[in-house]
Design a protein around this nucleic acid. Structure first.
Lengths: 128, 128
DNA sequence: AGGTGTCAACGAAGCCTTTCGTAGATCGAC
DNA sequence: GTCGATCTACGAAAGGCTTCGTTGACACCT
């Protein structure tokens, strides 16, 4: 059961995961208030219940207001979605995606430095 | 009507778009044969009909076997999906996505060179 | 104890995607 | 012209996502 591969989170699920990643363990009320989209309380509740069934989140029922925690680390989900997009749209080439991403918007000097660092380590690897 | 923003293509639609980008104008039969997923002929047909209604593809009905062409350039769709993912999962930072993408898989020397070139032009820009 | 507010649970509805069976049109071969 | 193959069109079904109304449980306050 726990070996099942997790499904790609839907849009609404991703919104909720982002809140849980940001705030840590939270109640439905807290998530609902943080999400400033127009969705109603019961909608968020229902979605989080479904996410529990799917194994995307964990629920602590010891309090009256159940406390939810993400079971999928942010990094994993990011990796999953990126490789998914790479396969489906960029012919399996992560570099193509990177090029596309970088040419769309502005990037801070700090991030540029990080990129340079990664790029150079990749280049060093390629020489071997 | 033609000014409407195009919706995000679904998974099945993306598969078909990839074939059209690759082969150029194609009939349903050709698309169906190129796609080596298990989907049936009528399934592909129906999806392409829906895509026509949505404005994702164009149809030339002058032949008995209608000829379909993509109306959305590959680049546009890639850009759309990338900015979408950046906003929904990477807090609006394209560089974060790029870093994630590059650290997942191998990248060819040619692509590395391209990346370096882009990176350097971005760095030059940042100095101004 | 009674009233008020908060919460989870349930179920249903609406919509979209994906799938395919069937029917009708068209073409080429015989 | 008829037969068989190919193609589009139509409609419907199944499943998933998202939404929310309603209900019943529980807790706190007076």
């Amino acid at each position: 059961m726990s070996r099942d591969k997790l499904p790609r989170p839907t849009d609404a699920e991703l919104g909720i995961l982002r809140v849980l990643w940001e705030r840590g363990a939270s109640t439905v009320r807290e998530v609902h208030e943080t999400l400033q989209d127009g969705s109603g309380y019961t909608t968020v509740l229902k979605t989080m219940q479904i996410m529990t069934e799917k194994g995307l989140v964990m629920r602590d029922e010891s309090q009256r207001a159940h406390v939810y925690t993400s079971r999928v680390p942010r990094e994993n989900t990011q990796r999953q979605l990126v490789t998914d997009l790479v396969d489906r749209v960029f012919g399996g080439s992560p570099a193509r995606l990177a090029l596309q991403a970088l040419s769309t918007k502005k990037t801070s000097p700090e991030e540029l430095a990080e990129l340079r660092q990664l790029l150079e380590s990749l280049e060093k690897e390629a020489e071997s």
